[in-house]
Amino acid sequence: MSAEADISVSEQKDTATTKVPVAPSEPFMEKLIRLPVVLPLLTFVLILVVWEAGTRLFAVPSYILPAPSRILGGFEVVSLSRWVEHVWSTLRVALMGFVLAIVVSLPIAVGLAKSRFLSRSLYPLLVVIQSVPVVAVAPIIIVVLGTDDAPRVVITFMITFFPLVVSMTTGLMATPPELIELSRSLRAPVWREISQIRLPYATPYIFSGLKISITLSVIGAVVAEFVAAEKGIGYFIQFSTSMFKLPQAWAGLVVLLVMSLVLFQAVSLTQKILFPWSLPKERK
């Protein structure tokens, strides 16, 4: 059998599986379900409408549940430049903690994956550290490290770091043993085994860890701001609730939500652009 014949068989299979029969008289609901954005958007709008109508109808006080229109008003209470200042403060801490977690967890993961001694001695310790409630430790860290960015970055780091270590270690150990044998049969240095085989193989695992960690990093930054800060969205929410300005606090919450979503999408997009082969095969 020739090489051409070989590939043509697999190509035929491909087209057969990807071709979705589109009937001319497709029911409206079917069409709606297949559109990617429309359905969730419609659901979201519907919830907003019910929410708005409900709070007006039953005259719910805004400190219990403000109507969406009131929350929108909450945005206008603060000037745009002040919003930017808050957002930047939280974003900066979240990103620094996230990057610190990546930088620290990578060598630890390599150590855990390569050395049985390290994985036996260090891993239980990591689990203990992870089990410490970071929120409870946060005030202590603030006292120890002061009130600038440093303690907030450390708190964020502590929340984001563990899932990264676990996913990286799992990924580094997921390499097919044959490739490690190939590496050994070539008598290549260990660092090249890690950089050219293990790390690329770990990419899908690393990215699932990064996706969890990036959203955790926003949580970490907010927790740190709750304890001690004079800026940031977390600080803003706490300040607003203490003044019973609930619509304003809700507006802060919306900003945080958008920030988390954007950061998550940024990580997803990075994977899609730089490592397209590491994505699971799409199912239609």
Binding site: P176, E178, L179, E181, L182, I197, P200, T203
Partner: peptide, 14 residues
């Protein structure tokens, strides 16, 4: 001077 072919091709997918 020894080459190895494994049961699975085990190529680098990237």
């Amino acid at each position: 001077d020894i080459g190895i072919v494994f049961q699975q091709a085990t190529l680098l997918p990237w």
